[in-house]
Design a protein around this nucleic acid. Structure first.
Lengths: 207, 207
DNA sequence: TGTACATCAGTGAACGCGCGTTCACTGATGTAC
DNA sequence: TGTACATCAGTGAACGCGCGTTCACTGATGTAC
């Protein structure tokens, strides 16, 4: 305990800085317009302390994406099974995802805004995370009998479509949920319908 | 001619301001981090002149979205026909769209970054434009025989899916096209596959 | 265990700079007679 | 048509402010003996 104290305290401050950035993006501000000084202030440290942890705001952003990646992978690992894939998995997955988004709003606001509007390094980092997902999904559903007449390239593209369909609407969920909690159900039903449509298409696909 | 001169000149400066903002966003900067002074400088006027045209940057942003909406509606109006909808329309539409994106990069960079990362007013304005599209698309394909067993609500959701599928990948096109012009074809083929998958699903849909 | 020294996370003053906004102005264009 | 006045897009100086970054510092924590 004693030997860890200094290191622990540093890690805590680091987390406070990252949380401060997420709180600010979560409040509607764009990441790229948030200053290092604001982040430090919100984290309760002096601006110069920031440099003990990150060289600039972009490095902080990349670290948030790392965290987000870990969170999403953990989420994805909960419940993985095969056969009767769509009906068994889709509703449950979308529900879990939607709850998760609501429970980590700030992270998803950050992700949505950086995905298309961050610096090119940040965009690329997010794209890699999404690619990881669609690859996982592809290897997950590859063995299904219903997909036997789809070749690997096409399956990859279809998986990208599934992943982007889910993420695409996340900003709508985030925007509505604050004023209208009932939107959660609408979001789940709409997303499920979209996924069912894609799934119908995928299973009748002939490469 | 004489009676229009002053008004004309004003409209021209206004356009220069909007173009300056688009050039800056197109160069990779996020709209929310661009200053009024930078825009004025790039437009070749003094910062105070900005206020003769817009009250602040957000108003300028909303005016860009208006322009974008007009452009997209005009684009959409080119070639509208029914029956044998997918095969006849999709390839042509995606090709036209992709060319259009490449020819108006700055507008689409702006749109992509503001769609998920702008202020809530700007996000809402973009969302309205996209809604307009999916409504147009829905009323366009509503009469098709293949969609007779899909009810109106479901058709709306499917049309949203089609529209978002096209826009979703636009940022990828924009990111790649600068370094690798051949990506245009990849983009077109991938997008077509995604749309074909959605279309297959839509035509075998039972509400 | 106690002491003497090293480390280093966080401090606070200072810098030069670009920011948004105000104000009184200029001078070309437009209008009334 | 010519003159006298009004309009108003664009100017330029000035303001107070928050910015990123530098620097020498402090003092609690960690380490060696």
């Amino acid at each position: 305990m004693q030997t860890q104290t200094r290191e622990e305290k540093k890690r805590q401050t680091r987390k406070q800085l990252m949380d401060a950035a997420l709180t600010l993006t979560g409040s509607g501000r764009h990441f790229s317009s948030i200053s290092l000084r604001e982040v430090a202030k919100n984290a309760g440290v002096v601006p110069t302390s920031f440099y003990r942890h990150f060289s600039d705001m972009e490095e902080l952003g990349l670290n948030i994406i790392d965290d987000l990646g870990l969170m999403l992978r953990k989420l994805m690992r909960t419940a993985r099974q095969h056969e009767d894939y769509f009906e068994a998995q889709a509703r449950n997955s979308v529900e879990v995802y939607a709850e998760y988004v609501c429970a980590h709003k700030n992270y998803f606001f950050f992700m949505e805004q950086v995905r298309t509007g961050g610096s090119s390094a940040l965009r690329k980092a997010i794209r890699n995370e999404l690619k990881y997902f669609s690859n996982e999904l592809a290897s997950d559903i590859r063995p299904l009998a219903q997909l036997s007449s789809t070749d690997d390239t096409d399956l990859d593209i279809i998986c990208q479509l599934i992943v982007s369909t889910v993420f695409e609407c996340t900003i709508d969920l985030l925007d509505h949920i604050e004023t209208n909690p009932a939107y959660l159900d609408t979001y789940i039903e709409h997303t499920l319908k979209k996924l069912r449509c894609v799934w119908l298409g995928a299973t009748s696909w002939q490469s």
